[in-house]
């Protein structure tokens, strides 16, 4: 088990993170983390509660101060602000969904397109309504009145409204019923398969994650302790014991 990240497909990485350190105030949470996401793949970060998964996501998106080398499509982005990072093509669905609860469903989608200009925004809204028909039914409602599953769909649709090249999802399954979670992962898988969207998902639920992942990173106390293809990771005894429980 090597701590160096390998790349499942051997393709030049879309997102390349090296030696990432970040934290809150005096507390350093990430201790030099390395990970890569290739163009067109679904990558998953597995880790227990408090391992630093959310911190990793926030550091990539520029929401907290961080150090290290991060490149996106070869462009360095460790010093960029969150809005610049969105413009580069990375959209994040934060943990707990982060919808704009006081805004209507439709305005949430417009909010997602904030970095874009042009008339095709309205067309995109319609397109995502086609993918998530439940949202169309509720487009005049405030997002806060939606159910958890609907809000998660909305959060994903909103992130996609910026037409990202890479989608970051922080624990999308949190607080959702199992059947809704499966539906959700099916949608993510379809987005990847049909549109070639690259996705980085953070999960505690290893079974679910391994089901759709191409490559997997295991995060423990702020560092990647194992990485490989989904198959390699499922066959790794230590990982299986810790995260799959058999």
């Amino acid at each position: 088990m090597s701590p160096e990240p390998t790349n499942a497909n051997g393709v030049a990485p879309l997102l390349d993170v090296r030696g990432l350190t970040a934290g809150y105030g005096q507390v350093q949470v990430l201790q030099g983390l390395n990970l890569r996401v290739a163009q067109g793949e679904v990558a998953v970060i597995l880790g227990a509660n408090g391992a630093g998964k959310t911190t990793t996501m926030r550091a990539i998106s520029g929401m907290i101060a961080r150090k290290g080398a991060i490149t996106f499509s070869g462009d360095p982005m460790a010093k960029r602000s969150p809005d610049e990072i969105v413009r580069m093509g990375i959209a994040q669905v934060p943990q707990g969904r982060g919808t704009f609860t006081d805004l209507t469903v439709e305005d949430n989608l417009r909010a997602g397109a904030f970095v874009r200009k042009g008339a095709d925004i309205e067309a995109d809204i319609q397109e995502w309504f086609d993918v998530f028909p439940r949202l169309r039914e509720r487009r005049e409602q405030k997002a806060g009145s939606l159910s958890g599953g609907e809000q998660q769909m909305l959060a994903i649709a909103r992130a996609l409204m910026s037409r990202p090249k890479l989608l970051l999802c922080d624990e999308p399954s949190l607080g959702l019923a199992p059947i809704i979670t499966q539906e959700l992962f099916a949608v993510l898988q379809r987005l990847n398969a049909e549109r070639g969207l690259s996705i980085l998902i953070v999960e505690q639920n290893a079974n679910l994650a391994l089901g759709i992942a191409h490559s997997v990173f295991v995060l423990e106390t702020g560092a990647i302790v194992a990485s490989g293809t989904a198959e390699e990771i499922s066959n790794n005894d230590a990982v299986r014991k810790a995260y799959l429980g058999y």
């Binding site: 998106s61 929401m63 602000s81 969150p82 809005d83 969105v86 413009r87 959209a91 994040q92 934060p94 982060g98 919808t99 704009f100 609860t101 006081d102 805004l103 909010a111 997602g112 904030f114 970095v115 909103r158 992130a159 910026s162």
Partner: peptide, 12 residues
């Protein structure tokens, strides 16, 4: 409504 999400949506 949600300053963090606003940032994540690219609002300066």
């Amino acid at each position: 409504n949600n300053p963090d999400s606003a940032k994540l949506a690219g609002v300066p």
